Simulated scan of single mutants.
Amino acid sequence: MAAKLAEDAGALLLELRNSSDLTGKNLGDAGDHKANTMLIAALREHRPDDGILSEESQETNARLSKNRVWIIDPVDGTREYSEGRSDWAVHVALAIDGKAAIGAVALPSLNMTLRSDVTTASPTRSDKLRMVVSRSRPAKEAVAVAEILDAELIPMGSAGAKAMAVVRGEADIYLHSGGQYEWDNCAPVAVAQAYGLHCSRIDGEPLTYNQSDTYLPDLLICHKEDASHILDLVNGINDQ
């Protein structure tokens, strides 16, 4: 269901972008609103007893008493979407007891959806490591770690697109410290974990969802064999 909802929202967003006269921020706002309305309505119809946390809906405390909470980002990478780029995503995830249990990340411009229940083999690690970073604001820790590892930096848009680049084998590391919220990474983490990748905070602590404070500022997704070394490097950089 998560995959179908993400795909349906993606199709709606592509149709809006291709057929509308809206541009820029107006297009992004309209896409956020339409996709969110569709996703919320479907979840309330099909999973009425579950909680919902969405970037685009007014926050309530009702979800905090639920052990099953859908965490969604109707348009992850609104700017990329509104600019006609391909590096944006739709996130639909289910957190169970605070863990990213089920997730789907649609990449509508690539006609692709990655999901936690249908996986291929774990992505192959490149001999020369590749790290995805923000195309506009690369995190200082990421740049410093990449320099130490002699890793290639790959600028990219949304969080979902960057995380799925690692899942798809187009990159090896996604190290982020510039600030995110639960909806930015819950679905990507559920998918990445299903593909056998390491996912954690940049201090090595687990990622916990459905918290009263939804701010979840940092994230590491990488191959398991690289995780300890990268975490040590980040710790050393932050201690300087």
Rank of each mutant, 00 (worst) to 15 (best):
R201V: 00
R130A: 11
D49A: 08
A194P: 01
R168T: 06
P206G: 08
L175P: 13
I221R: 02
A151N: 05
L16W: 06
D150Q: 12
E55C: 02
I40K: 14
A144M: 10
D117W: 12
M112P: 00
V167D: 00
A35V: 03
A121V: 13
G51A: 09
S86Q: 10
G103L: 04
H33S: 14
D232Y: 00
G51W: 02
E80S: 15
H198N: 11
L233E: 09
A101P: 06
R68N: 14
D49V: 01
N61Y: 13
P206R: 07
I173Y: 04
D8V: 08
Q240G: 13
K224Y: 06
D232H: 06
T208E: 13
G179M: 03
K34Q: 15
V145Q: 03
K34T: 10
Q240S: 11
L13D: 13
A192H: 02
W88M: 07
G157E: 08
G236P: 02
V166N: 00
D239G: 11
A30K: 14
H198D: 07
V105N: 07
A121I: 13
L53M: 14
P123V: 03
G28D: 04
G178C: 06
L12R: 15
L12T: 11
A101H: 10
A89L: 00
E225V: 13
R168W: 08
A62D: 14
V92N: 00
T208Y: 12
S116C: 11
A101V: 03
L175S: 09
D76I: 02
Y209G: 01
T113G: 04
T113Q: 03
V133M: 11
S109T: 13
S54P: 05
P48D: 09
T60E: 09
D21L: 08
A227L: 01
D49K: 09
H176V: 05
A192W: 00
S57M: 15
V133D: 08
I173Q: 04
C186N: 01
V75P: 06
Y174H: 13
L207D: 02
T124Q: 15
D172L: 04
R68Y: 05
L110P: 06
M38F: 15
A187V: 08
G98A: 02
L13C: 10
R135V: 01
V189M: 05
L220E: 04
L39W: 00
L53C: 08
E56M: 06
K128R: 15
G157Y: 07
M131Y: 04
S177H: 10
T214K: 12
D226V: 00
D32G: 10
N111C: 04
I96C: 09
K4N: 13
